[in-house]
Nucleic acid binder design. Structure first.
Lengths: 207, 207
DNA sequence: CCATGTTTTTCATCCATTGAAAGTTTGCAT
DNA sequence: ATGCAAACTTTCAATGGATGAAAAACATGG
């Protein structure tokens, strides 16, 4: 009937507001006092909900920093599925990396400052790092799979795995280094892209 | 004075025995009731120590399954450092993978059954998987670094990262698949080696 | 056997996470 | 409007991992 933005009821809007309040509160508190030092009770209080309610929005304390992971992965997979007809695997992967790197700078709902903060947090808190790697691994698996499907007969599972591993490996390490030396998003993005190009050149042999 | 094996006092021997008892108990309980379902209290009880004591041997519940991670990494790094004078980076990495894969079958202190069990546990419990990936990442970083040093002037940081990423990426995915379909250690090892060879052939271009 | 340094146990506490029951709010149909 | 049903939130209680501190048990060297 109505345009979808107005169609959602109060319920939905409230939920969005609460989710947002929780993310914001968490990010701010983490920045102020550190991740470990911030309790869920504090986050919940800052967002004006009960502690228990936090868990109906996020499955864990870590999750509040990864709430958009699913969405991001879908975007990447879609990109692979819609490859250009003449695009080589290596080029496609580079475009993919570009997408990842670019997009990290233009979050829908986070400011640049928040994005950087989140990155720094994830990089510096081991359990968060572990979680990020877990998500990345999952993404790699799915990408490799998608890549096989996108190039049927041309790219075996192992080739795909190697290609994805090489590119993400290079980018991961390069970006990591850039982030931890406190580089700007622009620099990080540049470094990552150079790494991708470099790794890709080694992959051209895959066709 | 005496040969080192007899030199260690009762204290040291007891500590080894307790550590071992904890690992064994944990492994057995995890196998019987599952990881999440097993409490530290149960593990400690099975090893005849207090719960608190568990934490003077391992930093966390997860750690009891990764107690030898440090040692393994050192072995790999040593291997890179002692590369043959005419060995190419790709060949060296393949030898490395071989080492990893082989050795997983011949643990110093775990039986084959225990090794398989541990693998299955790590693969099937998300937090353990995350932890394993974290450790792997650390290893990758250090390997890339070591690789650069082993081939000064010949391999830049990004090349090294790409090479390590490609090989470990391929092996990781292949081994993962093999493990989760319940393959034997021999099969896993074979799969991993084929993956490594495949990825390496793509890397020869690095020299 | 004693003095000493270690390790283990006890005890107390914090916090993340989860289940269940009770209380509110929203959406919808009459 | 009114009121019912579904969806959410709060409250309450409990579990289990992790950590600090002080007391108790133990090993070592003299």
């Amino acid at each position: 009937m109505q345009y979808s933005s107005a169609m959602v009821g109060l319920r939905e809007r409230k939920k969005q507001r609460t989710r947002r309040a929780l993310v914001d509160a968490a990010l701010r508190l983490f920045a102020d006092k550190g991740y470990e030092e911030t309790t869920l009770a504090e986050i919940a209080a800052a967002a004006d909900v009960s502690t228990r309610t936090f868990f109906s929005y996020f499955a864990s304390k870590e999750d509040v920093l990864f709430y958009d992971a699913e969405e991001r992965m879908e975007r990447l997979l879609a990109l692979v599925a819609s490859r250009g007809p003449h695009e080589s695997p290596a080029d496609l992967l580079v475009r993919l990396i570009d997408e990842i790197v670019y997009r990290s700078g233009e979050e829908e709902d986070l400011t640049l400052e928040e994005t950087r903060l989140r990155m720094r947090l994830i990089m510096s808190v081991p359990p968060l790092q572990a979680r990020a790697l877990f998500l990345l691994f999952d993404t790699q698996l799915r990408l490799a799979e998608a890549l096989c499907e996108a190039y049927p007969g041309r790219l075996g599972p192992l080739d795909a795995a190697a290609a994805v591993g090489a590119l993400t490996g290079a980018v991961k390490l390069a970006a990591m280094a850039a982030i931890s030396r406190g580089a700007s998003l622009q620099e990080i993005s540049d470094t990552a892209r150079r790494a991708a190009a470099l790794a890709a050149s080694g992959l051209r042999s895959l066709g």
